[in-house]
């Protein structure tokens, strides 16, 4: 079986597209859970970028860093979901527009 090398640019393009989808998701969607998912998407697109560059440079740094990002993302989930659940207990809503006690 002959392996066809996928050019670096394709990985970077895919990662950039995922990142932008996540970014737009955070800005546009109003459900807290979906916003949170979009942030995770952004982090995963970064992971893809890191691994692609790691392969390109032939160093392991990028892959090691991707592991760190995963660990941090897991820690963020525990804290973030706890905050969202606690807010849901107080407000019975997970819509970002309902969270408006503090105003300018």
């Amino acid at each position: 079986m002959t392996a066809m090398a996928v050019p670096l640019g394709w990985y970077l393009g895919l990662a950039a597209a995922l990142f932008v989808i996540g970014l737009v998701g955070v800005l546009v969607r109003r459900s807290l859970i979906v916003m949170f998912m979009s942030i995770e998407l952004m982090l995963n697109s970064v992971n893809l970028t890191l691994v692609a560059f790691s392969r390109f440079h032939g160093t392991l740094d990028g892959q090691v860093m991707a592991f760190f990002v995963m660990v941090v993302a897991a820690a963020e989930v525990t804290v973030g979901l706890a905050i969202i659940v606690n807010l849901f207990r107080l407000k019975a809503s997970s819509d970002a527009d309902d969270v408006d006690v503090l105003k300018a």
Partner: peptide, 14 residues
């Protein structure tokens, strides 16, 4: 913002 910063870090690594 961490995700944005991280993307910057990934590109710098690149």
């Amino acid at each position: 913002s961490s995700a944005i910063l991280l993307y910057g870090i990934a590109l710098s690594y690149g």
